[in-house]
């Protein structure tokens, strides 16, 4: 009995472990080694820390990272503020019958790829785009305005891309909130804000934190949206990594940046978990 159990465990776990090891762990080990290597001027390859030190010595690198992280945090918070009422509305206000309908509406944009979505935005917002066309037609504008290539446009695009990943954990956590708790608080003299901050948000913290982690990581790791919608001002850290690998042929530097991104974003999330008093194991559930 015991052996057969062990065998079945082994049987089911092996593909997962193999997948993890071959496709995730091995390449990362390779990258990690690469990040500590450097080609010298005379063509030799040596062990060095300089790829990592470069990040701290060269302001452009760490400033780009700080910028990316700060914008990712802004995007995460904005996404939260926008989707929270939406999730609340879907779970608590709309009847059960319409919940599926609303979820479908939210999911719909994600049936197409991110690239197509971003190009859709670009068609809408560009100087010769749809919105400008109508504004001009109705006489609201005299000259077309370039709405693309601003930070705000980029943030909007990132928020749009992230919404789904925030709304799903929020809906699942709010669904588990007993309506009676809200009513009880109301009955005990609480107003709307008290209910929100004392009952709903404390209850929703695990969902909020897990949504925030996902959105933060996805935004930090996004490449397309900042690049296409942010335009000329939007050096995102992922683009920096791409540039090191592709344009500069400096895989060692790119690998080091990749690991710095991993470590620094983990640090940001760790700080976020500390601040919200949550444990990763609770949040991941």
């Amino acid at each position: 009995m015991k052996t057969s159990l062990r065998w079945s465990l082994f049987f089911f776990l092996t593909p997962v472990l193999l997948w993890l090891f071959l496709l995730i762990v091995l390449p990362h080990i390779d990258l990690l080694i690469m990040s500590f290597r450097m080609d010298t001027d005379d063509g030799k390859t040596i062990w060095t820390l300089s790829n990592y030190l470069n990040f701290f010595h060269e302001p452009i690198y760490w400033l780009t990272f700080v910028r990316t992280a700060v914008y990712s945090i802004i995007v995460t918070l904005l996404t939260l503020v926008i989707t929270f009422p939406l999730a609340f509305y879907i779970t608590k206000v709309v009847g059960l019958r319409f919940q599926g309908f609303f979820m479908t509406i939210i999911l719909m944009p994600f049936w197409v790829s991110e690239l197509v979505r971003v190009y859709g935005w670009m068609i809408l917002l560009r100087e010769s785009g749809v919105i400008n066309h109508f504004l001009l037609k109705f006489g609201l504008l005299r000259h077309p305005v370039e709405m693309l290539y601003h930070d705000s446009t980029m943030i909007m695009g990132l928020v749009y891309t992230s919404m789904l990943f925030m709304v799903v954990p929020l809906i699942s956590v709010l669904e588990s909130l007993d309506d009676g708790l809200i009513e009880a608080a109301y009955d005990l003299g609480a107003n709307m804000w008290h209910i929100l901050f004392k009952i709903i948000i404390p209850h929703a913290v695990p969902g909020i934190v897990s949504g925030c982690i996902v959105v933060f990581m996805l935004t930090l790791g996004n490449y397309l949206t900042p690049n296409l919608m942010g335009g000329k001002n939007s050096l995102w850290f992922t683009e920096q990594i791409y540039n090191e690998f592709i344009a500069s042929f400096n895989w060692n530097q790119g690998a080091a940046f990749g690991f710095l991104l991993l470590v620094l974003s983990s640090l940001v999330i760790w700080a976020g978990l500390k601040m919200s008093g949550q444990k990763l194991s609770q949040v991941v559930q």
């Binding site: 007993d178 009513e183 009880a184 608080a185």
Partner: peptide, 20 residues
């Protein structure tokens, strides 16, 4: 509204706040 009335309600499922 309920929060302004001098009555209080004990709910069927009690509705105690589990986070407190």
């Amino acid at each position: 509204s309920p929060n302004k009335r001098p009555v209080n309600l004990i709910f069927q499922n009690l509705a105690l706040f589990p986070m407190m």
